Amino acid sequence: MTTDPAVLLRGAGLRSTAPRRAVLQALLTRPHSTATDLSQAVGGQLSSQTIYNALDDLTGSGLVRRIEPAGSPTRYETRVGDNHHHVVCRSCGAVADVDCAVGVAPCLTPGAAPGFARIDEAELTWWGTCTDCALKQR
């Protein structure tokens, strides 16, 4: 699979603009980035509004996934479509991917889902302490 932002953008039906390429390239190398992280990654070359516009386009096209851990800034990643989950450090806010442990999506079965004909995805966030923070707390 290619990691060329221009090819990915065109494949998703988006125009390959410089801001979209810059944001997508930053996300390819920095998963779980916030908009602020992305601004720093592109050297402050893009306005906040331009970054948010690019993120909206990228998430709308399915190239990028938005994750919103409670009490944490919205984060973005390019790992999409595989129904993985996340673990967040309560101390420093670090985020890591957690692969689905059982079967295929949604890999979790809700107890009840009245009014829904089909459930195709689960989004789960685990909370804990990362190794670095655990070592610092000793």
Rank of each mutant, 00 (worst) to 15 (best):
A54K: 02
A54H: 03
A54T: 11
L55W: 02
L55V: 01
D56A: 06
D56P: 00
D56F: 03
D57K: 02
D57L: 10
L58N: 15
L58V: 12
L58I: 07
G60N: 04
G60A: 03
S61I: 00
S61T: 13
G62L: 08
G62A: 02
L63S: 14
L63N: 15
L63H: 13
V64Q: 15
R65Q: 07
R66F: 07
R66E: 14
E68M: 06
E68G: 07
E68F: 12
E68N: 15
P69I: 03
A70C: 03
A70E: 15
A70P: 10
G71E: 13
S72C: 08
S72H: 15
P73R: 08
P73D: 12
T74Q: 12
R75M: 11
Y76W: 07
E77V: 02
E77P: 08
T78H: 09
T78A: 07
R79Q: 15
V80H: 14
V80P: 12
V80C: 05
G81V: 04
G81D: 10
G81S: 05
G81F: 13
N83Y: 02
N83C: 11
H84L: 06
H85R: 06
H85F: 10
H86C: 09
H86I: 11
V87D: 12
S91F: 00
C92A: 03
A94F: 04
V95E: 01
V95W: 01
V95T: 08
A96I: 01
D97H: 14
D97Q: 09
